[in-house]
């Protein structure tokens, strides 16, 4: 058990515990805080995978923007601070069975593919200029420039759309 493996096991246990808390906590703001803990654990995992840029982007985008948005939505759609009523619907046992079956199927497929040699490991180190290559590829017309432009259009449309949907129409009357 090398040090990195111990760190991975600790982080993975923390992520799974926090994720389970997200889907089972009654208090929604607490659920959002557990989501933030999960996302932070994911950022640590990205650092373990030597993708430091993605780790910081995870913190900036998910924790710094999406989580704040979720907490804001929670605060705007509640009338009292305490929760009333159950927080799971009637489908929970069926949902548990479906989730477990899905998990089992995915893990089984994984190990089958691994046994048949479907994951050829590269065993090569991550190149030191991967960030620069990423930047160059994102604006290269022969590479991923179309994806970058499509993402830009998607975000612009999403921004305009969400402002249009969430506007207060009562002002217009």
């Amino acid at each position: 058990m090398t040090g990195l493996q111990i760190v991975f096991l600790a982080v993975a246990a923390a992520i799974l515990a926090a994720a389970v808390q997200v889907v089972t906590t009654r208090n929604l703001v607490h659920a959002a805080l557990w989501l933030i803990a999960t996302l932070f654990g994911m950022a640590i995992l990205f650092v373990l995978l030597e993708a430091g840029f993605l780790a910081v982007v995870q913190v900036v985008v998910y924790i710094g923007a999406i989580s704040i948005l979720i907490i804001f939505a929670v605060m705007l759609t509640r009338r009292v601070m305490q929760d009333t009523g159950p927080q799971t619907n009637d489908l929970r046992w069926l949902a548990l069975v479906i989730a477990a079956a899905l998990g089992g199927a995915i893990v089984y497929t994984l190990f089958q593919t691994d046994r048949q040699g479907g994951f050829p490991l590269a065993n090569a180190p991550v190149p030191a200029d991967s960030l620069e290559t990423l930047g160059l590829y994102l604006v290269d017309p022969n590479a991923y420039m179309l994806a970058l432009v499509a993402i830009g259009v998607l975000l612009a449309v999403g921004m305009v759309g969400s402002i249009a949907i969430a506007r207060d129409d009562r002002e217009k009357e």
């Binding site: 703001v29 805080l33 933030i36 430091g52 840029f53 910081v56 982007v57 913190v59 900036v60 924790i63 710094g64 923007a65 989580s67 704040i68 907490i71 804001f72 605060m75 601070m81 960030l131």
Partner: peptide, 28 residues
């Protein structure tokens, strides 16, 4: 000497926003 130091500053700055908002909400 992080090779993404400038982006890191932005990232941890956004944690402060979260802290103030949670402080305001938690005060009932």
């Amino acid at each position: 000497d992080l090779n993404i130091g400038v982006l890191y500053i932005v990232g941890v700055g956004s944690l402060g926003t979260l802290a103030i908002m949670l402080g305001g909400w938690a005060s009932n």
